[in-house]
Design a protein around this nucleic acid. Structure first.
Length: 588
DNA sequence: GCCGTTTTCGGCCCGACTGTTTTCAGTCG
């Protein structure tokens, strides 16, 4: 059992305890332990008790739970709770506005323990009899169920990504397998994937000897159950119900297969039409002559196929038939942004609030990543649960950032600059929650939408627009608050927000991570059209893989056809701050 | 349930907002 799975067990136990009305501090302990396990860099299933106990947040009880889970797949408290409630009850918590108290209420009153049962109860009008269940609440739940069902069955990009990595590692260990490439929506950079397509090639995949590699694929240890095993294809489900199709192909047709299975459907339809026009036929096996299909025109590489069709190779992220084919024919495809274009990350937290590292540690991690600048932007006081900074602590933090910046610049030979910053909360009245004299000290002021995000659409938009008018605000953070597979964007009037930001010169932040996606490709396209400044940040809370979240965000930028020139933090550091909205009193 | 001590037990991030109340419970970050 890997750390993630282990963390999942602890976290779901915490949720079950909450539904059960357990002690709040005990619940927090389970959450903390789950977090610690998830973040741990060592394999805890192989760790002894002493090693487990050395991890902050893991004590005697939790160490015993972990050891039991490694040995048996569960532990006593979890088993006891699962005997009280069906496990499907945890799905209910995924609905917006649905917390443990409401879940407990539904269970106690009507034995509702799944989303389907809840939907039935709503349709039967059973809910209105319950306390605190007005029409608004019921409407909200109905909408939530609708959204949930739309996203059900799809997997977040990072889950598909991780599965692809681990299967790839397994396959590459087989002699004669030379290349494994994820195709489908994962390769196109979609934020979710319905299934996972892996294309495999190498000497072991040639037609006369492929059976051994197929056999090896079918014995991948992560397989929950095998769906099909053909001559050169293996399909199976992983433990998390993700369906995986592995195709083992001769090198001679690898490019054609890669092109075909990457899609999208509409892109492929348009491409096949183009082929017909030129007297060819395109399939997953080859681009061949229409009058004699035994004559292969191109098949080995994608580049050769696109070239034979008279066009430049098209990056997978653009293959949605949104004009990329015409652009490729005219050799006018944009040079899409690459991760290596990014020179800085200006949204990160430290242990002054809810981060896990010091300013210096974040700086070291950023430098190791090749960045030229970062901004430390801890939370302001309104986000009380994060130990947000009040004016005094914010000023102290500024002092500390400047001191660390000086020391670090000296040690690193000036390779990295640390900007001062703050992530302030936009309040219900559209005001920022720190006074101007504090904001004036900050290089980077990110105004984020945290506590506002549940509000009705009209007020929400109006309040954000008001906040944009605050002259100290330089970046609009988490502009849509969109959480992947959790809830739809809350119906915010994004065109108005983006147009206002563009007019006032406020940059909007794109911040994509496994769990959230602030701007989708459509938002980003729109932002560019409006001439909006865009930054891409990670909202990093630790110096480890958090900074790596940038790679998830880059995909949406590429899907929106953005180039390095469209993104502010591709600028050298001398130019970055001056590209932001000018500050009211250009003090420091 | 964990932690840090007072080495045996008390303290453990909390404020904004909504919808349902008729003074507040529940959810969210």
């Amino acid at each position: 059992m890997d750390n993630s799975a282990l963390a999942g067990l602890l976290d779901e136990t915490a949720s079950l305890l909450e539904i059960n009305g357990g002690d709040a501090f005990r619940i927090r302990s389970y959450r903390r332990a789950a977090e610690a396990v998830e973040q741990s860099t060592i394999d805890l299933s192989a760790a002894d008790a002493a090693r487990l106990l050395s991890i902050p947040g893991i004590g005697k009880g939790m160490a015993a739970n972990i050891q039991a889970a490694v040995a048996t797949g569960s532990f006593p408290l979890r088993d006891e709770l699962l005997a009280l409630y069906p496990s499907g009850i945890l799905d209910l918590l995924k609905l917006p506005g649905m917390g443990p108290k409401t879940v407990a209420l539904l269970w106690d009153a009507s034995k509702i323990s799944s989303i389907d049962q809840l939907a039935t109860a709503i349709d039967a009008g059973q809910l209105s009899a319950l306390p605190r269940m007005g029409q608004k609440q019921i409407d909200k739940l109905r909408k939530g169920i609708e959204d949930y069902r739309q996203s059900a069955g799809r997997f977040r990009m990072n889950d598909a990504d991780e599965a692809a990595k681990s299967i790839t590692e397994y396959l590459m260990a087989f002699p004669g397998i030379a290349q494994v490439t994820p195709a489908g929506s994962l390769r196109r950079g979609r934020e979710t994937a319905g299934d996972l397509d892996l294309l495999v090639t190498g000497p072991a995949c040639e037609i006369d000897c492929v059976s051994a590699a197929v056999e090896y694929t079918a014995t991948y240890p992560g397989i929950r159950n095998l769906i099909a095993r053909g001559e050169n294809k293996v399909s199976f489900y992983l433990a998390n119900s993700l369906q995986v199709d592995v195709r083992l192909l001769p090198a001679g047709c690898y490019g054609a297969a890669l092109q075909y299975f990457t899609g999208s459907k509409m892109h492929n339809v348009a491409l096949r039409q183009r082929a017909l026009k030129l007297g060819y036929t395109l399939s997953e096996w080859a681009l061949a002559r229409l009058d004699d299909e035994s004559v292969i025109v191109a098949a080995e590489t994608e580049e050769s196929i696109y070239a034979a069709l008279g066009m430049d190779w098209i990056a997978p992220e653009m293959r949605e038939n949104l004009g990329e084919i015409e652009a490729a024919l005219q050799h006018k495809l944009p040079q899409l942004i690459e991760q290596s274009d990014i020179r800085g990350d200006v949204h990160m937290h430290t242990f002054a609030t809810d981060g896990r590292n010091s300013i210096r540690e974040m700086a070291e991690a950023a430098l190791a990543r090749g960045y030229e600048y970062i901004a430390i932007t801890d939370h302001s006081r309104n986000l009380a649960m994060t130990n947000g900074l009040d004016p005094e602590r914010a000023m102290e933090q500024v002092r500390l950032i400047r001191q660390t910046d000086r020391e670090f610049a000296e040690e690193s030979g000036g390779k990295l600059r640390i900007f001062t910053g703050i992530e302030v909360d936009i309040l219900g009245d559209g005001e920022l929650d720190l006074p101007d004299e504090v904001l004036a000290e900050m290089d980077v002021v990110i105004g984020s939408v945290h506590t506002l995000f549940q509000q009705p659409k009209e007020q929400m938009t109006e309040r954000i627009v008001r906040a944009l008018h605050n002259p100290y605000l330089r970046i609009l953070g988490h502009p849509t608050g969109r959480m992947l597979l959790r809830r739809e964007p809350y119906g915010l009037d994004m065109p108005t927000v983006l147009a206002t930001a563009a007019r006032l010169g406020v940059a909007v932040e794109h911040n994509a991570s496994p769990s959230r996606l602030d701007l989708c490709d459509r938002d980003l396209r729109h932002a560019k059209e409006l001439g909006c400044k865009i930054v891409i940040n990670t909202d990093a809370h630790n110096n480890g893989h958090d900074l790596d979240k940038m790679r998830f965000g880059i995909r949406q930028l590429r899907r929106a056809w953005l180039t390095a020139g469209d993104i502010l933090n591709t600028l050298p550091r001398e130019q970055f701050l001056s590209a932001l909205r000018p500050r009211p009193n250009a003090a420091s």
